Simulated scan of single mutants.
Amino acid sequence: MSEFKRIPPAEAQALRDRGAVFVDIRDPQTYASGHIAGAQHLDNQSVHGFITAADLDAPLVVVCYHGNSSQSAAAYLAGQGFSEVYSLDGGFELWRSTYPEHVEQGQPG
Rank of each mutant, 00 (worst) to 15 (best):
A53D: 10
G79I: 04
V21I: 14
D43W: 08
S87V: 06
Q40S: 11
V62C: 03
Y76N: 13
Y86A: 03
V85Q: 05
N68A: 14
L77A: 05
F50Q: 07
A75Y: 03
L77H: 01
A32D: 09
A73Q: 09
S46D: 01
S46V: 05
F82Q: 02
I25S: 01
H66D: 12
I36L: 12
G34T: 04
Y65T: 12
D55V: 08
A39R: 01
C64I: 01
D24S: 06
G67F: 00
S69P: 07
A73I: 10
V47M: 13
V21H: 11
F22H: 05
I51G: 00
S83P: 05
D24M: 04
N44H: 13
A54Y: 02
G79A: 05
Y65A: 13
S72H: 11
R26S: 05
V21F: 06
V47F: 11
L42R: 03
Y86I: 01
F22I: 10
H35D: 00
I36W: 04
Y65G: 10
Y65H: 14
Y76C: 07
V47H: 07
D43A: 09
T52Y: 14
A37K: 15
V23P: 04
D55Y: 07
D17C: 08
L56Y: 10
L15P: 01
I36K: 08
L56M: 13
A54D: 06
G67Q: 03
A54V: 09
G19M: 09
L60N: 00
S87W: 01
G67A: 03
D55Q: 10
V85I: 11
S83R: 15
V61P: 03
A58T: 13
Y76L: 14
Y86D: 01
D57Q: 14
A54E: 04
C64S: 11
V85K: 04
G34E: 00
L15D: 01
V63A: 08
D55I: 05
G19S: 10
G19L: 11
Q45Y: 12
A54S: 12
I51V: 15
V62G: 00
R16D: 11
D55E: 12
G19A: 12
R26D: 05
S87D: 09
F50T: 02
A53H: 08
Q29T: 14
A73D: 04
G79K: 09
A32G: 10
A32L: 10
L56C: 07
L42C: 03
G67M: 02
Q29E: 15
V62F: 00
Q45C: 08
S87M: 03
T52N: 14
A14K: 15
F82C: 01
